[in-house]
Design a protein around this nucleic acid. Structure first.
Lengths: 256, 256
DNA sequence: AGAGTTTATTTCGATATGCGAAAAAGTGAA
DNA sequence: TTCACTTTTTCGCATATCGAAATAAACTCT
C-alpha cells in the first residue's frame, strides 16, 4: 500500500522550519513525483489533515488525533497525571517517560515546571539513544545480541564536545547502568542539560520504558541529581510498573 | 487515495479501551473488508507504526511522529514552555491552548500541576466546543454565518445535568463572551471541572486559539476564577499573539 | 508588458490495489 | 480428538492509483 506510506511521509515532512510547504517542497522532501505528492496532499486536505493557503499547505489539528491514538491506547494521560506531574512538582524540574524506537528514544510523556533548560522536547520528540539518560537506561535493558547490534549499526555523532561516541565507552556505561540501576548524563545531548534516568520494568521484568528527571547544570550537578533523586525515580518507576500490569499497552508496544 | 484514508482510519481505531486490536476488530471498527484492513495493518507494521503480538496489533511510538509534525510546525513547544508552564505555575492549576476543528476543540498544548481534576486531557484530546470554555471563546471568534452554521448543525448533548444545550442560550453565552472577552464554564463538560478561557488573536485580529485555566470546583469557584485570573490570561494571550507574528503556523492552520 | 522560468495540474497507459469469495488456519467446547 | 465456529489468508478480476510527459498557470525579472 504505497499510498499509505507516502501519505504518512507527507505528514512527517512538516517540521518547525517547514510549517508551510508547497507541492514541490513536499515532493522533494518525500522524494516522490509531484503528481503523487499532489494526490496525497489532496486526499489529506479532503480528510481534514491539511489545509491550503494559496499554494502552501499546512497541517491541521486533526493530525493530533493520530498521535492521540497512541497516547490513549498506552494510557499515557494517567501515567502523566499520576506520576510525572508529581515527580516534576517534587523536583521543580522536568520529568519524562521515554521508549526506544530503533536507534532513538521517543518522549511519550512529559511534565515540566519552568526550567532554564534549553532542550525543546515534547511528546513525540526523538533523540539519539546513546546520548540520553533514558536511552542508556533502555539500552541497558536490551538482550546482549540486541545491544551488540545497536552498537554495531548505530551512527554515533558528537552533539556536543562532551558527547561520548566511542562504542566501547558506551558499552561500559550501559553496563554500569545495568549494574547500578540508573544512567546520568550531562552536556552530552545539549549543553546545560543534565539528566538522571531509571528503567521502567513491566510485570515480567522487561525494560519497556525509562523515566527521567532532567534539569540545567546551572541548577544542579549530575552527582547531586543522582544522590537526591535516584530513590525518588525508582519509587515512581515501581508505581508505573504496577500501572502497566493493569493497562499493559506500553509493555506490548515496546517489544519489537 | 483510499488506502491512505483507510490507513489513517486504522490508526485512529486504537483507543484507551482498545489498545490491542485483531484484524477483525480493525475491520469492524473502520467498516472496511478484512482483506483491506489486513493490507493496511501489514503496511503500517512494515513502516513501523504498529507491531504484532500473535493476532493482536498494537500501535508503536513512531505514530507519535505524526502528531509531533503538527506540534513542531506550530511551534507548540515554545508556546508551552514560555507561556503555559508559567500560567500553570502561577495558578497551581492546568493551563491549555486549544483550537477549533469542526465541532470540537482540540488541545494543542497543556501544562499542568497536580490537581484534583477528573478530566483527562492531553495534546490531541477533543471535546465538544459548546460545553467548554475554550470552545465558547473560539465560537465567539467566528463570523456570524459560521456561528449560525455551527448552531444549526451541531449536535448538542448534555454531558452533565449542568450542560447548556439550548442553541439560543448558547448563542447568548457566546455573544457575552464576545463582549466581555472571556468564557467560563462549571460542571458542563464534566462534574467538578471549572474553567476560564480567553481568545488568542493572531496579528490580524482573528481568533485562532483559546487559552484557558482550569481547575476543580472544590478548589476555586467560577466567579473567583474570573476575578483572579482574567487579567492574567489576557496578558498571556497577548504574549502568544506576539509569538504568532513570528511563527505563524497556528494562525495559518486555524482558518478553514 | 513580455519573455523566460518555475510550479502546479492534467492526461493516460501501465501497474498496483481493492475487495468479494473461497480456502486455510486457529480456537474452544464437548 | 472432533466438530463448529471464527478469524485470517489467499486469489483473481475489476477498479483505482502511479508517474512520465504534456499542458496550464503563476511568478520573476528586465
Amino acid at each position: 500500500m504505497g499510498g499509505l506510506a507516502k501519505g504518512l511521509a507527507v505528514i512527517r515532512a512538516f517540521t518547525r522550519d517547514r510549517a508551510t510547504l508547497n507541492l514541490s517542497d513536499v515532493a522533494a522532501l518525500t522524494e516522490m513525483p509531484a503528481a503523487t505528492a499532489r494526490r496525497c496532499l489532496l486526499t489529506l486536505e479532503e480528510l481534514g489533515y491539511v489545509t491550503r493557503r494559496g499554494r502552501q499547505f499546512v497541517l491541521r489539528p486533526k493530525v493530533l488525533e493520530l498521535g492521540a491514538a497512541y497516547l490513549e491506547s498506552m494510557n499515557i494521560e494517567t501515567l502523566t497525571k499520576t506520576h510525572l506531574e508529581e515527580l516534576a512538582g517534587s523536583t521543580g524540574d522536568s520529568a519524562a517517560l521515554c521508549v526506544l524506537d530503533g536507534f532513538e528514544i521517543v518522549y511519550v510523556a512529559r511534565a515540566s515546571i519552568r526550567t532554564l533548560m534549553r532542550l525543546e522536547a515534547h511528546v513525540g520528540s526523538r533523540f539519539p539513544a546513546y546520548a540520553t539518560s533514558t536511552g542508556r537506561a533502555l539500552l541497558a535493558g536490551l538482550a546482549p545480541e540486541r545491544l551488540q547490534h545497536y552498537l554495531d549499526t548505530a551512527t554515533f555523532e558528537a552533539l556536543t564536545d562532551r558527547t561520548i561516541i566511542d562504542p566501547l565507552r558506551l558499552r561500559q556505561l550501559i553496563e554500569d547502568c545495568r549494574r547500578t540501576g540508573y544512567a546520568a548524563v550531562e552536556d552530552e545531548l545539549a549543553y546545560g542539560v543534565v539528566a538522571l534516568a531509571v528503567p521502567v520494568f513491566d510485570q515480567y521484568g522487561r525494560v519497556v520504558a525509562a523515566l527521567n528527571s532532567s534539569s540545567h547544570s546551572r541548577r544542579i550537578s549530575k552527582a547531586k541529581l543522582v544522590r537526591e533523586r535516584f530513590n525518588m525515580l525508582q519509587k515512581v518507576s515501581r508505581q508505573i510498573t504496577a500501572d502497566l500490569a493493569v493497562v499493559p499497552g506500553l509493555s506490548l508496544s515496546a517489544i519489537a
